[in-house]
Design a protein around this nucleic acid. Sequence first.
RNA 1: GCUCGGAUGGUGGAAUUGGUAGACACGUUGGACUUAAAAUCCAAUGACCAUUGCGGUCGUGCGGGUUCAAGUCCCGCUCCGAGUACCA
Length: 937
Amino acid sequence: MSYDFKAIEAKWQQYWAKNQTYKADNNSTQPKYYVLDMFPYPSGAGLHVGHPLGYIASDIVARYYRHKGYNVLHPQGYDSFGLPAEQYAIQTGQHPAKTTKNNIERYRQQLDRMGFSFDWSREIRTSNADYYKWTQWIFLLLFDHYYCVDTDKAQPISQLIDRFQKEGNSQFAAICDADTPIFSASEWQDYSEEQQQELLLKYRLTYLAESEVNWCPALGTVLANDEIIDGVSERGGHSVTKKSMRQWSMRIGAYAERLLQGLNTIDWPEPLKEMQRNWIGKSTGANVQFAIAGHAEQIEVFTTRPDTLFGVSFMTLAPELELVQQITTPEQQEAVTAYIEKTKQRSERDRQSDVKSISGVFTGAYALHPFTQERVPIWVGDYVLAGYGTGAVMAVPCGDQRDYNFAKHFDLLIPNIFEGIDISEAAYAEKGSTPLCDSDFLNGLAYEEALPKVIEALEAAGKGKGSVTYRLRDAIFSRQRYWGEPIPIYYKNNLPCPLTLEDLPLELPAVEKYLPTPEGNPPLGNATEWGWDEKARKVVAVSEIDHQTVFPLELNTMPGWAGSSWYFYRYMDAQNSQAFADKKAVDYWQDVDLYLGGSEHATGHLLYSRFWQKFLYDLGELPVDEYAKKLINQGMILGESAIAYRKPGTNSYVSKGLVGDAKMEAIRVDVNLVNTSYELDLDGLRAWQPQFADADFELEAGKFIVGTEVEKMSKSKYNVVNPDAICDRYGADTLRMYEMFLGPLEQAKPWNTAGISGVHSFLKKLWRLFFEDEKLRLSEEEPSAAAYKSLHQTIKKINTDIAQFSFNTCISTFMICVNELSAEGTASRKIVEPLVVLLAPFAPHIAEELWEKLGHKESITTAGYPIHDEKYLKETEKEYPVSFNGKMRFTYSLPLDMDKAAIEKQILAEPQTQKYLEGKTPKKVIVVPGKIINIVL
RNA sequence: GCUCGGAUGGUGGAAUUGGUAGACACGUUGGACUUAAAAUCCAAUGACCAUUGCGGUCGUGCGGGUUCAAGUCCCGCUCCGAGUACCA
């Protein structure tokens, strides 16, 4: 009987499904282990061999922990809202729900073939109303809370209203918009309901605000910063401009410090943490007030170098600041207005690609230095960003390269305040130990001492204070799209009113067209049923909107990251209709023990989900404030595109070896037509695309060889390898083991089928260990010492390697073990039985089959994972390499328990040693027990 | 520019964290079995020299250093990849 992987895999996949082998129990007394994959967006292209890499790794871990006696939660679902389905709907008129459903079915089929141990009873889809009901609920909670600085957590808005009633807003610290006015308790009470609501919006953790957004006219929507690459949209490459719109935002900035600190408590890859730290971009320094000559207003600047205060020679304001208009002198008015207009017209793309050119204009106004009262000219320059710090900088040309360049360009003063530093060529930006000069009370002090001193002086003079600024901006939450979660808000007198939990889910309405309306409203503006009846608490026809009892609903939908920011808690109790998850279930599962996914989500999903986590933790909804203890980034599997070389302007192709120095056009051909020796199947090619039907091919040695290029796997590059094809040819167990064998999990690597035969023949060899022809040839005899040793070495290595997620070396270890056992001849039950369990996480189908053949009635899942016994590994003797001056000469076998002195004595007495010593006395003898003996002459 | 990460045979990659570099696999070459092919098994395989003598020299991107001993640690470069970018 040969290894019939097709029959075996089909059999066990059915068995697992029928017996719900991998269903996790919410009422278990076993310890829990939660292994999570980043759930996929079900695209129309289906899975390629790159997708399962992380799923295979997490599946190995899940199965391993089950063997170890843990109650394992290993769920899977779909991030099923998203732009591609909507784009497809626009083109074809097919409802996104329908295409999404089809895509999911295809994904599921492909996933099932690979033998994953997912608990499918917990499957979720973010586009299902019973799921997004709870996404909407979280939105409502955010709307109903503000961030209290004193308690350093989110608090209910009702509490804020209480405080406003009693003391106004000047007595306590809460995170709010920068333009929030100060008011007293009596002023608050005098405000109208509308005014009060407007003010509360400035505090809510999700809020409406007029904000500058990245507007993409071609897509008709707003894009987040991470959806823009090189100034054009990630999807489609359309140009993007700035536009001011009233948008929903998330006050993630309130959590900046906690998001930063939390990184120290989680075991995530250091590079990923570093990315998040940079994205949060904390800088400490000071805010400094500059008076303006002849004006009541002041300019506040943020600087990380208040110690260089005496080097200020001008100020620069961002063109967007309102203050600019107020202080500009009549003579400069024209120039300033022209400059502001010019900046407005420049698209984000221009501004980014044109970093080097320096532009700016003088306002005619002067600021007064807080200590010297010297007059400092105020300029406007677009290198200052309105959105960072205060939108104004104190320019210290001797200490900052951009200020330096600006000063050189406009011929402004460059006073030097660094002792003994030459600044004739460039600014000196280091925070070094160089003492300051010409700096009044800071003279002679270097950065470290000057910093606290100047802040102290500023605070004493009431001219500034120490301050911290973050680069992290609040996240725009509105999308002008159809295929996303509706925002559970309606508008009364233009003010947003929240729905309540009882009203949810607010279901996505049907629309005729998925494009924006002619008036420029989002696609939901096309819905006929999209009014909110406040009394009946239900959605009614738009025609009934009267602004008395029926009001318009929000037309924007939520962004892609909304549904993915909390999904890992839904898996704990996926069917619950009363809560996002039952409290008992959440208390039992707590958090994710291992999270696997790509690093491309570093500053998107992985940051937003931490933010929501901390918020829900503040509310007591979740037990921990970081949801994933450990995270691993699996590397991307790249495609290896096949290139056929064509003579320019002809239809003749030349085999790779014959190209030489000739100029050729590189034409990508389907990799699936290429075999492992890079030979192209010409008949297949001719049938594949008509342009090749009558092409000429110059062969070498009767073959046509293609060139290759490693790039991202994508349909358009014809380099996509479908896992189904591999499963057909070699089976799922081979695919699983081969993907792991390819290299370290974290590393990006090209897909190449060349080595797959090695893994496949390993499985065949394993099979032959059990079967000779038709017969199970299992020995019940006591195994040899060598067999025991081989097994226990393997057990030891596999256990330590799984703990380190080093799956590629696990596969090697298995190969060595099976090679050794095969060489021995007979397979003893005492050896192969534990071996099969050991292998089960990696190649579950063949392991189940062999387990059954060994006479077991229950699934191998219930078997305990083998633990090695040192007694089989114990060695009494060890080969010591003996080297002279570090150069290896010979080896000598010695008992392991000998002490160093005895070893030294015995080695020196050896005739062979004497020969190499040539009568000299060694200076030193180094003995590392069990490792090496080095004799230094 | 800044911040990370990397560089080991023809190829993918190992190396107990300073202790015999190249495990394991692919590929290649030779052999066995076979009418033949597939499958399987055996042997060789870093480079160069010596090969009828068991050996020698070099070798982990480049140049230095520390050490009895360096792929591994330190200093200075080169190249490649990722992230980020007027962040005051």
